[in-house]
C-alpha cells in the first residue's frame, strides 16, 4: 500500500498552567503577555503520528499545520522538534478562526497535500469546542474516530479504541480517515533543546487565508465572557444542635 501521509493540525493556546483572566469589557480572555503553548491534546496527536512511524508503519510524511498569529510558528517548531517533518502556517492576525472555518481550511490542505490520515486533538483547551475534527470528517466524507485512546494500523485498516462514558468503544475503518485524540492515547515526549535546534532547519511554509479563497467569516458573536463565581467559604458550627439547626435552615432536613 502507499505510505501514510499524515496531517496534524495544532493550535496555539494559553498555557494549561495559566489561570485565564477575563478582560474588563467581558468580551474575551486576556491574551496579552500571557504564556502560550501548544494545545495539550495536539501534543498527543503529534506524538501518535511519530509513534506510528516508530512502530515501522509506512509513514511517508508528517505535516504539522497551524492557522493563527505569527507566534504560532513557535508551536509549529515544537511540533517539528517532536518529530513532524515539515510545517504549514496560515498567518492570520486579526480574526479568531472558528471550528467550521478551520475545518474548511483543513479540507483544502488535505486535498492539496494529498493526505490520507488526519490526527487532531479532540478539543482545544481555550474554546473547548470539540468540533473541528468532526466537521472536517464531514466535509471530506471520510470515516472518523473521535477520542482515541489507542490506534492500531494494519494495512489500510485502522482500529481505534475510543473513550466513551464509563468504558471504551472499538471501531474499525479504512483509510483515509480522521482521528481525534484523547488524554490517555500516549505520553507526549518533551521537545528538548537539541531537537528544537534541529527543528529550525526543517521547512516551514507560510501562507495566508487569501491562498485558500479568503473568506471564512465569523458566524458566532461572543456576547459575554464571565468568570465562574468565587467559592463561598464554609462556616463552623459549635455542636450537634448547631449542625442540625443549620441543616434545617438550609432545608436539608
Amino acid at each position: 500500500m502507499s505510505g501514510l501521509r499524515i496531517l496534524v493540525p495544532v493550535k496555539r493556546v494559553i498555557d494549561y498552567a495559566v489561570k485565564p483572566r477575563v478582560n474588563k469589557a467581558q468580551t474575551a480572555v486576556e491574551t496579552q503577555g500571557v504564556k502560550h503553548s501548544m494545545n495539550p491534546f495536539d501534543e498527543l496527536s503529534i506524538e501518535e503520528a511519530v509513534r506510528l512511524r516508530e512502530r515501522k508503519h509506512p509513514v511517508e510524511d508528517i505535516l504539522a499545520f497551524s492557522a493563527g498569529p505569527a507566534k504560532s510558528q513557535d508551536i509549529l517548531r515544537t511540533a517539528m522538534a517532536m518529530g513532524a517533518d515539515r510545517a504549514l502556517h496560515v498567518v492570520e492576525e486579526k480574526t479568531d478562526l472558528e471550528p467550521l472555518g478551520v475545518a474548511k481550511l483543513l479540507k483544502q490542505v488535505v486535498e492539496q497535500e494529498k493526505r490520507n490520515l488526519v490526527i487532531l486533538g479532540k478539543q482545544s483547551i481555550d474554546d473547548d469546542a470539540a468540533q473541528t475534527g468532526q466537521m472536517l470528517a464531514g466535509l471530506l466524507g471520510w470515516s472518523q474516530a473521535t477520542q482515541a485512546s489507542k490506534v492500531e494500523l494494519e494495512g489500510e485498516m485502522v482500529t481505534v479504541t475510543k473513550e466513551v462514558d464509563g468504558g471504551v468503544e472499538t471501531v474499525r475503518a479504512k483509510l483515509p480517515m480522521v482521528i481525534t485524540t484523547d488524554l490517555r492515547l500516549n505520553e507526549p515526549r518533551y521537545a528538548s533543546l537539541p531537537n528544537i535546534m534541529k527543528a529550525k532547519k526543517k521547512p516551514l511554509e507560510k501562507k495566508t487565508l487569501a491562498d485558500y479563497g479568503g473568506e471564512l467569516g465569523k458566524r458566532l458573536k461572543t456576547l459575554k465572557v464571565m468568570e465562574p463565581p468565587a467559592r463561598q467559604g464554609g462556616g463552623k458550627v459549635e455542636d450537634v444542635d448547631g449542625l442540625i439547626g443549620k441543616l434545617k435552615e438550609l432545608g436539608a432536613l
Binding site: Y16, P40, I125, Y190
Partner: peptide
C-alpha cells in the same frame, strides 16, 4: 524533570476533562 512536567500536565487535564 520531564516526567514531572508530563505528570503535572496530565493531572491538570484529567481534573478538567475526565
Amino acid at each position: 524533570v520531564e516526567a514531572l512536567y508530563y505528570l503535572k500536565k496530565y493531572r491538570t487535564l484529567r481534573k478538567a476533562y475526565a
